[in-house]
Simulated scan of single mutants.
Amino acid sequence: MMDIRPLRRVVLALFAIVIIAIGLTTRLPGVAWPPIFAKCLGSALWGVMVYCVVAWLRPGWHLARVALAASCVAVAVELSQLWHPAWLDAFRATRMGVLLLGRFFAWADIVAYLVGIGAAAATDAALRAR
């Protein structure tokens, strides 16, 4: 039986790159996304990206385990926004910091992350079934 994990990792990496590119468009000032849509879509896509990274790191894991781990990472990152040491706030003030960690805690972001992770897990399940 062929080990599909190397191929899975390539597909996940490519998918993550596409998701990041789409997600970045939600934060571009010249793109005319409605602000609330851009915020929710960007957060959901961030959740998808976290799912892809966890699945890439652990290609042999069952998708429920990947989804749970990705959810824990996403919630932990959002909760970290309640913690404000100077060094972390300095990183959050950079473009990379705000894209990776965000600045302000919001329950709505957690919901959007979980929706994105759920959509990624559903897509993963459908692809695995094929």
Rank of each mutant, 00 (worst) to 15 (best):
M1Y: 14
I4C: 10
I4R: 07
R5Y: 15
P6V: 15
P6T: 15
L14C: 12
F15D: 00
A16F: 11
A16H: 08
T26P: 04
T26R: 11
L28R: 09
P29G: 02
G30V: 03
A32N: 05
W33T: 07
W33M: 12
P34S: 01
P35R: 03
I36G: 03
F37V: 15
F37K: 14
A38L: 03
K39S: 07
K39Q: 13
K39D: 06
C40L: 08
S43R: 10
L45E: 07
W46P: 00
V48Q: 10
M49A: 13
Y51M: 14
C52D: 02
A55D: 06
A55W: 07
W56I: 13
W56S: 13
W56R: 08
W56V: 15
L57V: 11
L57D: 02
W61Y: 07
W61P: 00
A64W: 14
R65C: 12
R65I: 14
R65Y: 09
A67K: 05
A67E: 04
A69I: 12
A70I: 03
S71W: 02
S71P: 05
C72T: 07
C72L: 15
V73M: 12
A74F: 07
V75C: 04
E78C: 07
E78G: 03
L79Q: 02
L79I: 01
W83P: 09
A86E: 11
L88W: 02
D89K: 09
D89C: 15
A90C: 01
A90I: 02
G97R: 06
G97M: 05
V98W: 05
L99D: 03
L100E: 05
L101C: 03
F104L: 13
F105K: 11
F105R: 13
F105E: 08
W107P: 02
A108Q: 14
A112T: 02
Y113V: 09
L114N: 01
V115N: 06
G116R: 14
G116M: 14
G116Y: 13
G118R: 03
A119P: 00
A120H: 11
A120P: 05
A121T: 01
A122T: 14
A122H: 05
T123F: 11
T123S: 02
A125K: 13
L127K: 09
L127M: 15
L127N: 06
R128G: 09
R128Y: 10
